[in-house]
Design a binder for these strands. Structure first.
Length: 427
RNA sequence: GGAGGGGUGGCAGAGCGGUUGAAUGCACUGGUCUUGAAAACCAGCGUACUCGCAAGGGUACCGAGGGUUCGAAUCCCUCCUCCUCCGCCA
């Protein structure tokens, strides 16, 4: 969430930038002013309360001394006074609690303020293409197939069997399909390692505190699978466990940047999805992803964002997939993000652009919830910035590879993957 | 799942109802000494909120949340977590 400090200091900027997400500027200003007035009340309440508590402490100390000296009567008198103080403190404590929860409720409801470069817009149609694909798109024969047909033809993915074992949206990969997936995971992890990321294998379920810290809760409650018996959430992305490595952490200034990568399956309920979007691998409940995360000094985060964008771009180039890069408009921007670039890959069999990566700078929005801070050279403490990106999401990359590289003889796998496979063609 | 023992500052480790935000050691930072370094000595060294231009105050925090008490790191309850042993299992 945004910090109160930032809201007070940059109220006009924040209100204006939130209009990109569709907020009415006056409404949001009213809300922010309400927030600030709650905070003022909270401060003066605390001030009064602290004074009382200080007095109480002092009296209690005196009572102890009086008892030691055997002056019972005086002690009893003081005790009576403390009882009165305590009553007052109780009401101040209650006020404090109430004001804090009001403040928190409002803060939790406000999304991140979009970066200056984020365009206005309602939905994906308003996203800005920052890098388009200008070369010719794969020109397939007239009888070219979409990936779900290819998957059936070459026995690579069994959607029905996955549905039988679990449910729809849980595809079962087999044979060369399974191997292709493993090759991609290894390729992505190796590339991340070359770029200086530490590889980890995190838990795939997280507790409420972790889901809260990265912003999945309370915003995306319905998108996660929830294990009621154990009060755990299946991760919707590796971002959650990776970023939570840094919950309640104070780094040193020279520890930056922290770079961590992980391969994890991701689980998403995808409630409300329908139509051709959900065909084949386009939208599934379980998919594999290699995630990259960086923890950054605030001054560096946009530079690092660019680096991450080129990292992802490089993967797509190596995979020889046509891609384009979009800057998400305010309306399409995630709740926690200040700036997000999406990567889409052209899947020639279905003649569709598929989102395969999302690279974001959260600035201090996540750090604030994570309590992820750093000490500068003067010993002062500040919030760090967090960034993450998919590098890459597997399911749709597989879809694009199958479709784009199909030939009458079979599917010719991209050269870069051949080191990871004991075959060059799927037939 | 059963039985037992723990969770205190960066780490180790005291304290087990009353100036204890917390001894001591190590680590770390600054200083003295030294040609330099080490050693020795001196000083400093948590986080959050809050008041203050600042210097410097106040409050809270000893796994988390409640409770008892004039007063709790210390007593009671609930939960979380770690360790040891037994059971079960990959």
């Amino acid at each position: 969430m945004l910090t109160l400090k930032k809201i007070i200091a940059e109220l006009d900027f924040i209100a204006k930038s939130l209009t990109k997400r569709g907020y009415n500027e006056d409404d949001i200003k009213d809300l922010l002013h309400e927030l600030i007035s709650h905070d003022k009340k909270r401060k003066s309440n605390q001030q009064a309360n602290d004074d009382l508590k200080s007095k109480m402490k002092d009296f209690s100390g005196q009572i102890g001394k009086l008892y030691k000296e055997g002056r019972q009567n005086e002690a009893s008198k003081l005790k009576a006074e403390v009882v009165v103080l305590k009553e007052k403190i109780k009401t101040y404590d209650e006020n404090d609690k109430e004001l804090k929860s009001k403040i928190d409720d409002i803060l939790l409801s406000i999304p991140n303020a979009p970066h200056n470069s984020v365009p206005h817009g309602k939905n994906e149609e308003d996203n800005e293409v920052v890098k388009d694909w200008t070369d010719p798109l794969p020109n397939l024969a007239g009888d070219a197939l979409p990936h779900w047909e290819l998957a059936k033809k070459y026995n690579l993915i069994d959607f029905e069997l996955g549905a039988f074992i679990t449910g729809s949206g849980f595809p079962l990969f087999r044979n060369k399909g399974a191997k292709l997936k493993r090759a991609l995971i290894n390729f992505f992890l190796d590339e991340a390692e070359k770029a200086g990321y530490e590889e980890i294998r995190p838990p795939l379920m997280v507790n409420e505190a972790s889901a809260m810290a990265t912003g999945q809760l309370p915003d995306k409650e319905g998108q996660m699978y929830y294990m009621e018996k154990d009060d755990l959430y299946l991760i919707p992305t590796g971002e959650v466990p990776i970023t939570n490595i840094y919950r309640d952490v104070i780094l040193n200034e020279n520890d930056f940047p922290q770079k961590v990568t992980a391969y994890t399956p991701c689980f998403r309920r995808e409630a409300g999805s329908y139509g051709s979007d959900v065909k084949g691998l386009n939208r599934v409940h379980q998919f594999d992803k290699v995630e990259i995360v960086q923890i950054s000094h605030p001054d560096e985060s946009y530079k690092l964002l660019d680096q991450m964008v080129s990292h992802v771009e490089n993967l797509l180039i190596k995979l020889e997939l046509p891609y384009r890069i979009l800057r998400l408009c305010g309306g399409d921007l995630g709740f926690t993000s200040a700036l997000t670039y999406d990567f889409e890959v052209y899947s020639a069999g279905q003649k569709k652009w598929l989102e395969v990566s999302s690279v974001s700078n959260f600035e201090s929005f996540q750090s604030n919830r994570l309590k992820l801070r750093f000490k500068d050279s003067n010993g002062k403490i500040h919030l760090a910035h967090t960034l993450n990106g998919s590098a890459l999401a597997l399911a749709r990359v597989v879809a694009a590879i199958l479709e784009n590289f199909q030939t009458p003889e079979g599917i010719v796998v991209p050269k870069v993957l051949r080191d990871y496979l004991n075959f060059e063609i799927i037939n």
